[in-house]
Design a binder for these strands. Structure first.
Lengths: 402, 402
DNA sequence: TTCTTTTATTGACAGTGGAAAATAAGGGCC
DNA sequence: GGCCCTTATTTTCCACTGTCAATAAAAGAA
């Protein structure tokens, strides 16, 4: 994070106000009373926190769509009717960009992190300068679109894989981009004229899940991404784990089978060396003799029932399941969310993941709830936007709570 | 934890006071200024927090032994000399008991968790009733000794392996004791007339390390215990990880080698099935043909250079190192502390642990500082006392910070 | 002695969030 | 319609925390 030009300010003067806002943000329309209960505050405190937020337009009264539709909580019909408070998504927009080694994906979201617009662009030159120019170009496209609405764009998030120091806004080391110590937040803030948050891609996705997804309200959960790499974001004690040295959640290089295939990290039988896209494709090529070039083809082959292909996926599923069980054994999260591009093949893994998990989870660690959810292509960029939203909300009051 | 008879009260009325006290407790004699810096408070706040603690005798002024001995911080010789504040260990005593399946170990410590007295007693009947009686007996021995000093005994901690709900003071399930849902804190409080804290043994040891040991001041570290079992306590974001289902840090059942020996947990090649005491002894018996019955003999054999024995330890070291690397990869702790009875054999596996760790740690996770420290036999009981001290200090103000 | 420098303390003060009481807003009931 | 009951929200104090800026204290140096 960096300070910035023409910043939109967020009137959460007190910790309680930020607390209230994030509670309403994560848990949809709520009554003030309920908000207080969830945030551990008195109703009076909620009223006081809500007022300036209403005045500034960040919150609005009256339930959103689907308010009375769900008859879930049969309205008490007795006593003064509650008035619902919800976040006004229209109030501000955010841009999120995910940079991979060869592509940029950008989204424009509202304050509720709903995607308004998504764009992709190839990244032809990954050196910091040209990459920054490409990001800036893409962001300007988003800004042009945003200008049509009345909502200001209040922040830009950039997600990059590797070792990222979010607090300083510096990319310490990103293997795919081949960057070292790039002060990306500062550069991008200058180039785009927006407050910029830079974070590791998996952590950003975890933030999105924690605030807007299946992790909402949980103080301990893990997010596992399956795709080109196998990643893992962890939330412990309500905060995303960053690791003392900037690295955490490296589930991809857990060794699952010392007798397994070699991995680029130098070991054998890492989860990624068995269940990463490249590993699966290579292995399927080897087993079936078919010349598959990407995972789509590999999945197709398995679905067609080509001999041996399913087994490759089964083995991958087992590796993933074991990795998840390891996380569960160590941290005892309430829930594990499996996501990622690799989920296209989920029907090929699911059974093995679940089984390997159940077998390897020790004792009540097995009670952990394992969920899957699809990962649209723009999800990584949405994670970046979520990080920007988080910065926007928590920046001004010196607090740092997630 | 349970409320209690004739409780000694601790005058930490405000969060800041508890913060100040624990800072001084963990970091030895400190000036008020320095205390404020570390605790993130203004000097004024420190002065105000310190006063009632001094008045009540929990803190005293003037450095302890070794005050000026260390010339570390060359005294400025200019300006008003700082006056050091430290915890008065004599002010209160605590009892700690560790219960294994066949033995009780008890210690009496002072407020700084220094062991005053240690006692062991066999546990002949592990049913809750008789075990409680045995604990009570042992505690009364400690109390008798404590009566000779003027310090009151302000709490009792009991450490038990398995699933323990510290907040409720209930042992949910302890395999070694074969207990289920025993409200131990309440029972022991009644029987001993002391406030009782019950916690999982590894977590208690972790607390001791966090406040009084090599983890002092670190917000992220792991403690690995090597012995009959292989355990792991985790501190993330400055708090001990408890897990949503009461289980966390189960490093002992990480599968290190699917082709390895069977484990009682049902899997093959768990760390514990390779590096636990029983596994090592069994394997050494198998390899050498010698009839060894305990780890002392096994260690002796390896030291004598009996063929094959060293290799068993080497393999154990590798398994442990891999387990530690897994923790480092997932959480990125600042430090890992290896401890345990198994350290008697440390020279036999040190090299392999270090090597396996370095090999399996991914990227900068390898920068994690791996330390070893001996574990005196009464250390587990001391952990229980540390838990009691923690309860004592943090109970009254409704906070729950570790 | 007086000055300088650093540490500790004091007292005024600005916010925070809580408790309790007051108020608002329905639906039923008579 | 008026009154009562219930629950939600708001108001009105108010206690309390920790900060700020000023001041005292405790040396050594000049």
């Amino acid at each position: 994070m960096r300070s910035t030009p023409h910043a939109e300010t967020f009137p959460a003067h007190t910790p309680a106000a930020a607390q209230v806002f994030t509670t309403v943000l994560s848990h949809g329309p709520l009554t003030r009373l309920e908000t207080g209960r969830r945030a551990g505050l008195s109703p009076a405190a909620v009223t006081k926190a809500v007022r300036p937020l209403l005045a500034a337009g960040y919150l609005v009264e009256g339930g959103g769509p689907g308010e009375a539709a769900e008859g879930e909580e049969a309205r008490p019909a007795l006593g003064r009717p509650a008035s619902l408070v919800r976040v006004n998504g229209e109030r501000a927009l955010f841009a999120g960009v995910k940079a991979t080694g060869d592509e940029l994906i950008a989204v424009l979201t509202d304050l509720c992190c709903r995607v308004r617009l998504a764009r992709r662009a190839p990244l032809r030159d990954r050196a910091p300068g040209p990459a920054l120019a490409a990001v800036t170009g893409l962001v300007h496209e988003l800004l042009a679109h945003a200008a049509e609405s009345h909502a200001p764009v209040a922040g830009l998030g950039i997600a990059v894989s590797g070792d990222v120091d979010r607090a300083e806004g510096v990319v310490r080391y990103s293997p795919f981009l081949d960057w070292r110590d790039v002060p990306l937040a500062e550069l991008a803030a200058t180039a785009c004229g927006l407050p910029v948050t830079v974070d590791n891609d998996v952590r950003a996705l975890t933030v999105a899940e924690q605030w807007f997804g299946a992790g909402a309200g949980l103080s301990d959960f893990a997010l596992v991404t399956v795709g080109a790499g196998i990643g893992c974001g962890l939330v412990v004690h309500g905060r995303v784990v960053a690791g003392a040295h900037g690295v955490a959640g490296e589930i991809g290089h857990l060794v699952v089978d010392p007798a397994g295939p070699p991995c680029h990290c130098g070991n054998h039988g890492c989860v990624e060396a068995i269940a990463g896209d490249a590993a699966i494709v290579a292995r399927i090529r080897e087993v079936t003799g078919c010349h598959v070039v990407d995972s789509a083809e590999a999945v197709a082959l398995a679905h067609q029932g080509v001999p041996g292909a399913r087994e490759v996926y089964a083995r991958a599923g087992e590796a993933i399941g074991r990795g998840i069980a390891t996380v569960a054994n160590l941290l005892g999260p309430e829930r594990v969310i499996i996501s990622g591009e690799g989920l296209a093949a989920y029907d090929l893994f699911a059974e093995q993941i679940r089984q390997a998990f159940t077998t390897a989870a020790f004792g009540s660690a097995a009670r952990c709830d394992v969920q899957t959810r699809p990962l649209p292509f723009e999800e990584w960029a949405r994670g970046a936007a979520a990080a920007a939203i988080q910065t926007f909300i928590t920046q001004h009051p010196s607090s740092g709570k997630g």
